[in-house]
C-alpha cells in the first residue's frame, strides 16, 4: 500500500444535536485540542443516520466515519440511539464483508458534558486510521 506523502486521515462524524454535538461544543469551549482530521455533520439523533450515509462517505473519500449519540437510556428521543446501535453494528459487518476494515466505522456515546471524551475519541480514531491508511475499496475516484 503506497500512502501518498503528507496524507492525513479524514473522519466524517455524525453527531446528534442533543448530546454529542454539544459534547464537541464543550471540547471547544474548554479548549481541549484534538486532531483536525474530523468534520462534523449535525443530525437531530444518531437514529437519523442511514447506513447509506456511512457508505457514501467512504465512497467519496472519507477514511473513517464516526457516529456519536447520547448514552443508551439518555436519548433525547428515548430510543433513537438504540436503533442506531443495531443498524450500525450490521453496517460494520457489511463493511467487513466488502473487505473494508470495520474499525473505520465507529459508534460511540458522548454526552453533552463529555468534551474531553469527544476529544479522546477523535484522537484514538485518528491514530487507528493513520495505521490503516486510506480506503482502497469502494472509492469512486480511486485512492488518493
Amino acid at each position: 500500500m503506497s500512502v501518498r506523502e503528507g496524507w492525513r486521515p479524514k473522519i466524517v462524524a455524525f453527531c446528534c444535536n442533543w448530546c454529542s454535538y454539544a459534547g464537541a461544543d464543550l471540547a471547544g469551549t474548554s479548549r481541549i485540542p484534538y486532531p483536525a482530521s474530523v468534520r462534523i455533520i449535525r443530525v437531530p439523533c444518531s437514529g437519523r443516520v442511514n447506513p447509506v450515509f456511512v457508505v457514501r462517505a467512504l465512497q467519496r473519500g472519507a477514511d473513517g466515519v464516526l457516529v456519536a449519540g447520547c448514552h443508551p437510556g439518555d436519548c433525547h428521543y428515548s430510543t433513537g440511539n438504540l436503533y442506531a446501535r443495531r443498524r450500525l453494528l450490521v453496517t460494520r459487518r457489511l463493511l467487513a464483508y466488502m473487505g473494508i476494515e470495520p474499525e473505520r466505522l465507529r459508534l460511540c456515546w458522548v454526552s453533552a458534558s463529555e468534551g474531553e471524551r469527544f476529544a479522546k475519541v477523535i484522537e484514538e480514531m485518528t491514530a487507528v486510521l493513520e495505521k490503516l491508511g486510506p480506503v482502497q475499496q469502494l472509492r469512486e475516484e480511486g485512492p488518493p
Binding site: 437514529g47 437519523r48 457514501r56
Partner: peptide
C-alpha cells in the same frame, strides 16, 4: 428525530431540514 426516515425501505419518509439529499450533499 428522523428514526422513521431511516426505517423506511421505500425512501418515502424524509425529515424536513435534514433530508437524505441534504445529508448526502453534506457528506
Amino acid at each position: 428525530c428522523g428514526a422513521c426516515a431511516v426505517a423506511c425501505r421505500d425512501g418515502a419518509m424524509n425529515l424536513a431540514g435534514f433530508a437524505d439529499q441534504q445529508v448526502l450533499a453534506e457528506v
